[in-house]
Write a protein that binds this DNA or RNA. Structure first.
Length: 448
RNA sequence: GUCCCGUUCGUCUAGUGGUUUAGGACACCGCCCUUUCACGGCGGCAACACGGGUUCAAAUCCCGUACGGGACGCCA
């Protein structure tokens, strides 16, 4: 007997890991780590039709990318024996009953109820089937699907996010637990695994709230202890409507491809919708330390990509060269060194901007020269190599004395000639990175 | 359609009937720093969805409306 916190994240491998899903995953994980608990990654792949291994791989990649890990991993596909065993037990308890309606018939029933302005809840017709009727269906070769018989009693729990939640059993349809082909469905597998793996807390999206009502009765039916539940609101888009995939690249894989730092994603997702300020974090351990599930609100937070990029910029501005070295290499900037990185770091918004400054230093650059004589004059005054950190000052001082230019009149033409741009990193540092050859070439540049 | 949830500055939120000229963070704007941009420092702007009610007193309690979300699958 121990009180160790045990939590799982249970995605179904039926699509790419979406930012909304990643948020739930991350919060679940942070809660576990903040409580020194055990984290289980459970692949809910009972839907053989839609589950794909490539998605399972993408999920693991995505989670790993944002810094998550897991103490254990399981796959529902591999646990069919256990489910079948529990199914038999449930049948013996009389909590499972066979139904012979076809999907079309059920659909018709729902539509009919809806048109009478009634909630489309299953009418339990199969419950009153006689043994003869069932035998007749079986004789005709009809295979039943099986529903869990809910008790029509109040269901209540204290949700860690939503507070006290109440349901009436009669407001819910008896959930189908077994398909016509005999395979178990989500509700069954999920509850069994939650029991078998000793989950103490179930943290998931609020799309599961009414499922929880059913699940609580299933936990009871199995004689298991009921875990603590927490249902997080789903994210909405900037405008406050449903987060849709149309709105652009919102899968973890896409965000990664965009060159975002995973800590930007973590920083935003760990704080969005909570009363703690959204701030850039350099490492996930600090996020764990400050994590508090009770600070999350019931309201639907808006997800704004711009906010993610802002955080990304701030995080980038604090990364040391060793931390970005590999990622720069991935961008083809394997020749960039620490000195270069330090010079351009304050001027980049995204890591990919580094490529632009590399180009500015190494060329090709189209210099902007409005006064050719001035540029040539400046070139004549260039100090002899080797250059060092004082060279810029020496040079501009000489140019100033010689030409009488000062301030913006002095510096802007030099910047434009050297970089072809009117903004950028400190020229003193840039000068060294561009190098004598390029500097001379650019100062002598003439169009055509 | 039915049930459930939500709605406080642009955004995330604090606030559980009087302590509130509604607080913070980010964004935005301004100033300073900087012989560019960025970084940094300082300051400013800015909100209780709407309508009723309860109360001496309401962002806070109740009812309704609007808007948004969720659920109502032999998906998870």
């Amino acid at each position: 007997m121990n009180n160790e916190v045990k939590v799982r994240f249970a995605p179904s491998p039926t699509g790419m890991m979406h930012i909304g899903n990643a948020r739930t995953a991350l919060i679940t994980w942070l809660f576990t780590r903040a409580n020194n608990g055990r984290f289980l990654l459970r692949i809910d792949d009972t839907d053989q039709e839609r589950s794909k291994q490539e998605y399972e791989i993408a999920i693991e990649e995505g989670l790993t990318w944002i810094g998550m890990d897991w103490d254990e991993k399981t796959r529902q596909k591999d646990r069919m024996d256990i489910y079948n065993e529990k199914i038999e037990w449930l049948k013996e308890q009389g909590r499972l009953y066979p139904c012979y309606e076809t999907p079309e018939e059920l659909d018709l029933k729902r539509k009919s109820l809806l048109s009478r302005k009634l909630p489309p809840i299953y009418d339990r017709e199969a419950l009153s089937l006689t043994d003869e009727q069932k035998a007749s269906f079986d004789a005709q070769g009809s295979k039943p699907h099986w529903r869990f018989k809910l008790e029509h009693e109040p269901i209540e729990w204290n949700d860690l996010v939503r507070g006290p939640v109440k349901f009436r059993g009669s407001d819910l349809s008896d959930p189908v637990l077994i398909r016509e082909d005999g395979t178990p469905l989500y509700h069954l597998c999920s509850v069994i695994d939650d029991i078998e793996y000793g989950m103490t807390h179930i943290i998931r999206g609020e799309d599961h709230v009414s499922n929880t009502a059913c699940h609580i009765q299933m936990f009871k039916a199995f004689g298991a202890q009921i875990p603590t539940f927490a249902h997080l609101p789903l994210l909405s888009d900037k405008e406050g409507s449903k987060l849709s995939k149309r709105h652009g690249s919102l899968s973890l894989r896409d965000l990664r491809k965009e060159g975002l730092d995973p800590m930007a994603v973590v920083s935003l997702m760990a704080r969005l919708g909570s009363s703690d300020p959204i701030e850039p974090f350099a490492n996930i351990e600090d996020v764990v330390k400050s994590f508090d599930l009770s600070k999350f609100s019931r309201a639907t937070p808006k997800f704004d990509l711009d906010e993610l990029y802002r955080l990304n910029t701030k995080i980038l501005h604090n990364l040391s060269f060793t931390e970005v070295k590999d990622r720069l290499a991935e961008l083809g900037l394997d020749k960039m060194d620490g000195e270069f990185w330090l010079a351009i770091q304050p001027n980049i918004k995204r890591l990919t901007d580094a490529k632009e400054w590399w180009r500015v230093a190494k060329g090709p650059v189209t210099p902007i020269i409005e006064d050719r004589n001035f540029a040539l004059q400046a070139m004549e005054l260039l100090p002899a190599t080797p250059w060092d950190e004082n060279t810029w000052q020496e040079w501009t001082k000489a140019v100033k004395e010689q030409t009488g230019r000062k301030g913006k009149q002095l510096f802007m033409p030099l910047r434009q000639a050297l970089t072809g741009m009117d903004h950028g990193p400190e020229l003193g540092q840039l000068l060294l990175l561009i190098g004598e050859e390029n500097v001379k070439k650019r100062l002598q540049y003439s169009p055509e």
